[in-house]
Amino acid sequence: AKPPKTVTVKVEVTNADGETQTRTVTLTNLPKDLKPGDTVTLPETGQTARIVEITP
């Protein structure tokens, strides 16, 4: 079996106070056609994050 493909992405997350924070997260099994501006759900927090940058 192939190991899951991990991708490092820079995302913007809005916290409970309405502040936008930029975080770098490593995600696995992202859709192939994901692009900056799309939103993903962070598995560890369940927060919705907007992708700023994808590092191949």
Rank of each mutant, 00 (worst) to 15 (best):
V40I: 15
V25C: 04
P3D: 14
T41G: 03
K35I: 06
P43I: 08
G37H: 02
V25H: 02
T14P: 03
T28P: 15
T8W: 04
V7D: 04
T8F: 06
D17Q: 12
P43H: 07
T55C: 12
E19Q: 11
N29M: 04
T6E: 10
L42K: 00
P4E: 12
V13S: 03
T6D: 07
T24R: 03
T39N: 08
V13T: 08
E12L: 12
K2I: 15
A16R: 09
T26Y: 04
K35P: 00
P56F: 06
E53A: 10
P36V: 14
D33S: 09
A49Y: 01
E12G: 02
I51N: 00
K32S: 15
P4G: 14
T14F: 07
N29I: 04
Q47W: 01
R50S: 05
T6M: 11
V11Q: 00
Q21R: 08
V25E: 08
P56A: 13
A1D: 15
A16G: 10
E12H: 08
G37M: 02
K10F: 06
N15W: 06
T6A: 13
D17C: 11
L34V: 12
L42C: 07
K35N: 08
P43S: 08
V11P: 00
Q21G: 07
A16H: 10
T45Q: 03
Q21D: 07
P31G: 15
T45Y: 05
K32A: 15
V11D: 00
A49M: 02
K35R: 09
N15L: 12
K35D: 02
T26A: 06
T22H: 09
P36K: 07
T20L: 10
L27N: 06
P56S: 13
P4N: 12
V40W: 08
V25L: 05
Q21Y: 09
T45W: 07
P43K: 06
T55D: 11
V13G: 01
P56Y: 05
L27M: 10
I51K: 00
D33C: 11
T22Y: 10
T20W: 06
T20Q: 06
P56W: 04
R23A: 09
L30I: 15
R23M: 14
T28V: 15
T14V: 15
G46L: 05
E53D: 09
L30F: 14
L30Y: 15
G37A: 01
P31N: 11
L27S: 10
A1R: 05
K32V: 14
T39G: 03
K32P: 15
L30E: 14
E19D: 09
T39W: 14
I54K: 01
R50G: 01
A49F: 01
D38P: 00
V40M: 11
R50Y: 04
A49H: 02
D17T: 10
T39F: 14
G37V: 00
G46D: 05
D38I: 03
T26P: 04
P31V: 13
T20K: 13
G46R: 04
T55W: 13
T20R: 11
P31L: 14
T45I: 09
T28F: 02
K35G: 07
Q21T: 13
E53Y: 03
P56N: 13
T26C: 09
Q47E: 14
P31T: 15
A16C: 10
V9D: 00
V13Q: 03
T48G: 04
G37L: 01
T55K: 09
P31E: 15
E19M: 11
K10H: 05
P3M: 07
K5V: 14
P4I: 13
T28R: 06
I54F: 08
V40T: 03
V7Q: 12
A49T: 02
T8H: 07
P31I: 11
P4V: 12
E19N: 12
T26H: 14
P56T: 13
E19A: 11
T26K: 10
E44P: 06
T55F: 14
T8E: 08
A1C: 11
T55P: 08
Q21N: 08
V25M: 03
T26G: 05
T6R: 10
K5C: 14
V52I: 14
P3H: 14
D38L: 03
N29Y: 08
E53C: 09
A49V: 11
T55S: 12
E53H: 06
G46I: 02
I54Q: 02
V7M: 10
L30V: 14
L30G: 12
G37Q: 01
N29A: 06
T6W: 14
V25I: 14
P43A: 07
T14L: 12
T26F: 03
I54C: 03
T39A: 06
G37C: 03
D38R: 02
K2H: 15
P56Q: 10
I54A: 02
V11R: 00
K5G: 13
I54T: 03
P43N: 06
R50T: 12
N29C: 08
K35C: 07
K35V: 07
T8Y: 06
E44W: 03
E44L: 08
T28D: 14
N29L: 03
P56M: 12
N29Q: 11
T6F: 10
T41I: 13
T41S: 08
V7T: 10
K5P: 15
G46S: 04
P4F: 01
T41L: 12
K10E: 04
T26D: 14
T8D: 07
T55V: 14
G37D: 03
D33E: 14
K35H: 09
G37T: 01
T20N: 06
Q47L: 10
K5D: 15
A49C: 04
K35E: 06
T45M: 04
Q21S: 14
T45K: 03
R23T: 10
T22R: 08
T55N: 12
G18H: 03
K32Q: 14
P3G: 11
N29R: 04
T28M: 02
E44Y: 02
P3A: 10
L30D: 14
P56R: 09
G46W: 01
K5Y: 15
G37F: 02
K10L: 14
K5N: 15
T48A: 10
E44Q: 09
N15P: 02
A16Q: 12
